[in-house]
């Protein structure tokens, strides 16, 4: 039986690897398969997507597979997909997509961090700080610091019933309040504007249009 099936698609090559045989066997066959192809010097680069089926691979093994593919000069690895993940990864995944409700006032000097999305029922006072790996929704007054997408997710947003933050941080972007005294605004939401690469604020209604995949579980499923 063939261990490797190669399919050409519009986006490049799809390699479907057998998920029953040993890993070393697979690597060997992959190498042989790829070396058979005669590639012309002036061909454009071909993107390769690898489907592992129900085989679990470690990061190290993933690297081995990419290396074999990359050694062919005209091939680049686009993605390596497996249909299985470890329990630990699944738990992390779940934690990072959960919505954690918190009911209290975050006062000056207090820091609250959650994995996944945060729903705060209460205020963040000046000098207080909330952070989450996902979105932050504040049912109350946000007057302190909020940091969403702590692990680098720029797609996250910070929404509050009353927005008067001293700082908004999304992923590694920071924006601060103006130096003059300013009134807060009701029902607004901070997000990263892709074009400007900066944090902007807009009404909740506008931001839900810009972030149709706001509900995180679906977002994570799509993004992997």
């Amino acid at each position: 039986m063939q261990k490797i099936m190669i399919k050409g698609t519009r986006d490049g090559l799809t390699l479907r690897l057998d998920d029953q045989c040993g890993f070393d066997e697979l690597l060997q066959e992959l190498e042989e398969k790829l070396s058979m192809n005669g590639i012309e010097e002036d061909d454009p680069m071909v993107r390769v997507s690898v489907q592992l089926g129900k085989r679990y691979v470690t990061d190290e093994q993933k690297e081995q597979i990419s290396k074999v593919i990359r050694d062919r000069q005209k091939l680049v690895v686009d993605r390596i997909d497996s249909e299985v993940i470890t329990k630990q990864e699944a738990l992390n995944w779940k934690e990072n997509t959960d919505l954690t409700p918190i009911v209290r006032t975050i006062r000056s000097g207090q820091v609250v961090h959650v994995k996944g999305d945060m729903l705060l029922i209460g205020d963040v006072n000046p000098g207080g700080q909330v952070s989450a790996t996902g979105h932050i929704f504040v049912l109350g007054k946000l007057r302190g610091i909020a940091h969403s997408g702590m692990d680098g997710d720029e797609g996250t947003v910070i929404a509050a019933s009353y927005m008067q933050p001293s700082q908004l941080r999304i992923s590694d972007q920071v924006s601060r309040s103006p130096d003059y005294d300013s009134e807060g605004v009701y029902m607004e939401c901070g997000y990263v504007d892709e074009q400007e690469g900066k944090i902007r604020m807009d009404t909740l209604q506008q931001v839900t249009k810009k972030r149709p995949d706001l509900v995180s579980f679906e977002r994570r499923m799509l993004n992997g």
Partner: peptide, 16 residues
């Protein structure tokens, strides 16, 4: 005053 309200807030947090 802002500074004293800020400190009061901190103290209330600690008292909790």
């Amino acid at each position: 005053e802002k500074s004293s309200v800020r400190d009061a807030d901190r103290i209330i947090g600690l008292l909790e």
